[in-house]
Design a protein around this nucleic acid. Structure first.
Lengths: 221, 221, 221, 221
DNA sequence: GATGAATGAGTATTCATTCAT
DNA sequence: GATGAATGAATACTCATTCAT
């Protein structure tokens, strides 16, 4: 609720931004509230971060970098497919629980939020398309692509895992993008939506159930 | 693109609202554009619908009612668990493809992360809790609960299905809320996010794969 | 200093805009001051005029239209070259005295004002060029071209007059654009700069001297 | 584009200021860009020049001093009126072509219309009067007077020339201030406005035409 | 019943100037 | 002498809502 004033202003701004963006989402968050919480002048934010969007992006990029490394380590520390999936999920759930509000905002923005545009994959490359016949500014396109990339950096690790396993004949043949998105977005949504319930269970327990259900389904054989 | 002017104004507003809210999402949609499309005065919207939020709610409520009936019919038309799940998914995917923009908006309104509040289930009843130490207005509480209910009306049908099957020993034991949310939200997100890919496949094909994976998992045995 | 509140708001805004733009020039003028003088809400200005630039443009365009008609009438009411020039100048000086501050602003904006861009004539067509190696936004280009056109509408009448007289062998051969600009801009600058001196002389007297000097020079033969 | 770093900082600032003020005009130029080009700290500018306006003034004052000397030499190097006028114009056009952006800025600062004030000549002395019923700050008054003097230093040389010639019966009787301003401001405006056309002609050619037209007019006798 | 003119609170961004080091 | 981090006042523009007609 309040920020350590002995920290350098650049850091204070980032902490305040995390709080306010988490609380209100990107659009509804105001710079005024961020500077008030960080106890800095308005110009200081612009000096360090350029503008609102850059501030948000810097914030999530920093978190994401560490997250990606954690995911890579987790996956490579395991030998079996099931082990890798489980290790991935432990990291993912830990991270999403911690940054639920922030990451929920990214999902929203990436889906096109309030903008009438969406990211599509064409020939393996993400492109931004208007959901209707209207122009989408280059600025918005870049922004949505950036958010897409943030999420996809993590998704691609799982996608590769599943694609390799499919090639090795271990998994059913499916569209890898769809399968991965279904798997991970489903988990994300549950963490966002049933946050209090998730809070009561251990990360390991949830990860184990998710991995089991993904591989073997809900049916009792 | 244009609306039948012989229809009563109340209906014209709803049709225009569907078009504009779908196009821009809730926040970015403007009443000005809606009244221009509906060819009514601004006061008329306020007369019939009270305010922007009410208009949006009435719109999705109307769609949802029909959707719920379709789901109930689909499920009761089938005998087996797999058949019921498949029939549910066919309806769901058909509906979500049609109203992707509209329903995407509801998901994020319901998640409520942008307002500093969230819906939790306590003793089986949904209640709104602040995600931060701040008061949540009664107005916002009601609104979030309404959106929660909209989605939950559909989810509860699947939940019941799965709970009964679990009781009958057909499915693994899980938290029914989590399991259902994971299943359905995952599908929803894929439809929102990979809209163009989904557009290329038939609804039946997607439903069949989803049902199979849910019940039997991705693994080849 | 204050505006008749019985006038319609659209008109009041225009009157207030004339006062404030004249006083401060385009850039320094603020909408806040205009609405305060017009005693209307901020939205009202945007309803009627779209934005600050449109408001300014509408304002000067309206004045210019009447001015152009007056110039055309003046010129065609005379038979001789000297008569036509004199009649033109009478109208011009009358107009420039009345709208000195406003028109001074247009000169400034057309010359590129604070923007690092200028209007050049290429193949008889005005184009906007950067004064340095920097991009000029399409918006600014259009704007400068509009201001150029405003002034040129009046200049072209004199240019035609002088070109015809040159063809008829009555005037020395010169670049028509340069000659006209020199003639008229010189007069404009004197009106702007020596406003109080000009105020003491009659329009007819000034016009007569200008016409004489332009045609016969300062030298006594 | 870049500045010799072996020069003293005070000089580097002036060189950078010339570049940036010429490029963007006074208002749009930023100190940030100037210090970046000069490679000095922001405080250094304030140490040496006090503020932005002082920096601009020092810059043009320095240029003007050299210009005035050049004009005086040019005029005194000639014997005849026509020769003196021609020599003056050669210097003037050379100078204005070189510093078009910078001097254009001074013209509009001096006109002062953007500040609600103007310079008038009372009893041969320039005084600042408000164009509206409002107080003009002493600071603004001084500033406008300074800019007036900058331009007038050059104008007075021509004015003297013409006044003497008038007294000697060589020129028609006119208000000397008006006549000079009309003559020189007209030329200035053409250089500012038709910069690219002027660039294609030689200075001598333009000067010759201007002198001829000023003395003998446009009419063929 | 229906209208639409009018409103004004709310927000991202810029940049000259200051002053502690 | 020199710096540059920090400031905050100032400003164009949006849009849900109201209410007199």
């Amino acid at each position: 609720m309040s920020i350590d004033l002995t920290l350098p202003k650049e850091k204070r701004i980032l902490l305040a931004a995390e709080e306010i963006f988490s609380k209100y989402g990107y659009e509804k968050a105001t710079l005024d509230e961020i500077i008030s919480l960080a106890d800095v002048g308005k110009g200081t934010v612009y000096k360090y971060y350029g503008n609102k969007e850059q501030l948000f992006y810097k914030l999530i990029q920093e978190k994401n970098e560490q997250y990606i490394i954690a995911l890579q380590n987790a996956v490579s520390s395991q030998e079996t497919l099931q082990g890798k999936i489980y290790a991935y999920l432990v990291e993912m759930i830990t991270f999403y629980k911690k940054y639920a509000n922030l990451w929920q905002t990214i999902y929203f923005e990436m889906l096109g939020g309030h903008h009438g545009a969406m990211v599509c994959i064409e020939n393996g490359m993400p492109v931004v398309k208007s959901t209707y016949a209207m122009e989408v500014s280059e600025e918005l396109k870049e922004r949505m692509l950036r958010y897409h990339t943030i999420l996809d950096d993590a998704f691609v690790i799982m996608r590769k895992l599943l694609a390799d396993a499919t090639d090795a004949g271990k998994l059913k043949i499916s569209d890898d993008v769809i399968r991965t998105n279904y798997f991970l977005c489903g988990i994300a949504m549950v963490i966002f939506h049933d946050r209090d319930k998730i809070a009561k269970s251990s990360v390991e327990e949830i990860a184990a159930i998710c991995a089991d259900r993904f591989l073997h389904g809900e049916k009792i054989h």
